[in-house]
């Protein structure tokens, strides 16, 4: 199936301000970023040291310091790399779909899976929520929604055209509240309940727009 919405890799990178990992470091940087996630999943954010990461990445402390002047920068790069990976997973899930409803459900399920089953994120959410919540609540919530909407927008463009970004933020908001305040009505982990929730509350917010503006998706159905 030929879909046009998969954005160029570099474009996503630029949009999300992701680090460009150059090819001159023999993969040490990548290994260190993966090791950072492993260490946080095991020890938590507060207790993870550059020493732990060096050991897990099987490189020396000195080498690690060449790439990451501080723990803060290492964690920031690890977060960016993970956002990149999750973005790809969401776009990949959306590519498999051929209707707007399926796309919205797939995007939310993929996001719920990637975020809910992320070992490092899980540790921080359960035991160090004070680290995570400033990025999800109040002005942090505004930033999260804006970034998540950017990631979701290209998945919707075949169906919603220039209304995609607004719809993407609405979908992201629904996802964020379902993640933070899970309910009987809808959970990101239950495909049947999630589809019912999406049909009932998420899609009506923009399906009228589709009819009004007569934007057709590549397969000509909604």
């Amino acid at each position: 199936m030929a879909l046009t919405f998969a954005p160029e890799k570099d474009q996503v990178r630029a949009d999300l301000e992701l680090p460009v990992i150059d090819g001159t470091n023999d993969g040490i940087k990548e290994r260190a970023l993966i090791a950072t996630c492993e260490c946080i999943a095991r020890l938590g954010f507060a207790k993870t040291t550059l020493d732990d990461v060096a050991r897990a990445a099987q490189c020396s402390r000195a080498t690690l310091y060449r790439y990451f002047p501080s723990k803060a920068e290492m964690v920031r790069d690890a977060v960016r790399a993970e956002v990149m990976r999750i973005t790809r997973a969401i776009h990949f899930a959306a590519q498999e779909q051929d209707s707007l409803e399926d796309t919205v459900v797939a995007v939310l399920l993929a996001a719920g899976r990637e975020i809910g089953e992320h070992p490092a994120l899980r540790y921080v959410a359960n035991f160090e929520s004070e680290r995570l919540l400033p990025h999800l609540a109040f002005t942090g919530g505004d930033r999260f929604l804006s970034r998540a909407a950017k990631i979701i927008t290209p998945c919707l463009e075949p169906y919603l055209g220039d209304k995609s970004n607004r719809a993407a933020e609405w979908i992201a908001r629904n996802g964020l509240t379902l993640w933070l305040t899970p309910t009987d009505a809808g959970a990101l982990t239950d495909p049947v309940a999630l589809r019912a929730y999406v049909r009932e509350f998420v899609l009506p917010a923009f399906t009228s727009e589709v009819k009004k503006s007569k934007i057709q998706n590549p397969n000509g159905r909604l």
Partner: peptide, 10 residues
């Protein structure tokens, strides 16, 4: 509503 009050987004 709670989400929008705290983080109105767009």
């Amino acid at each position: 509503v709670l989400s929008i009050i705290a983080s109105p987004g767009r």
